[in-house]
């Protein structure tokens, strides 16, 4: 499980002194509704709805990539590709991995957020 913290640098580089903490804002936005995207993906898998899976995977991939959640991004990419090709069955074994990667990334982000709020 990899979260590349170096990716945060491109975000923190935009930070202006005395202004709202940018990374904290992005992390908050991520944590606010990313779980919903994961849920939508699973629901789509259960219902055999390739479009739903594709859209959820794409959205989760984009925001995860920005925050350096590399493993999660890779998994989302796989879901996106397979769903586009209509091969949902092939994607089924990846569902647990996705949950694990998401939990790991979320924990990682939440820890950073707490650290920043405490500071």
């Amino acid at each position: 499980m990899i979260v590349d913290v170096k990716a945060w640098k491109s975000i923190t580089s935009l930070q202006k002194p005395g202004k709202e903490d940018i990374l904290a804002k992005i992390l908050t936005l991520y944590l606010a509704d990313s779980q919903q995207l994961v849920d939508k993906l699973h629901q789509g898998m259960d219902a055999g709805d390739a479009t739903a899976v594709n859209q959820a995977a794409h959205s989760l991939k984009s925001r995860s990539a920005v925050l350096g959640a590399l493993s999660l991004t890779t998994l989302c990419q796989q879901f996106e590709t397979l769903s586009r090709q209509g091969q949902l069955t092939e994607a089924e074994p990846l569902q647990d991995q996705l949950d694990a990667a998401f939990d790991h990334a979320s924990q990682c982000f939440r820890a950073e957020l707490n650290k920043r709020r405490a500071a």
Partner: peptide, 16 residues
């Protein structure tokens, strides 16, 4: 962009 997090990030970048 449909993703609020990505919109926020782009906004910050452009406001710079």
């Amino acid at each position: 962009d449909d993703d609020p997090a990505l919109r926020a990030l782009s906004r910050m970048s452009l406001e710079q």
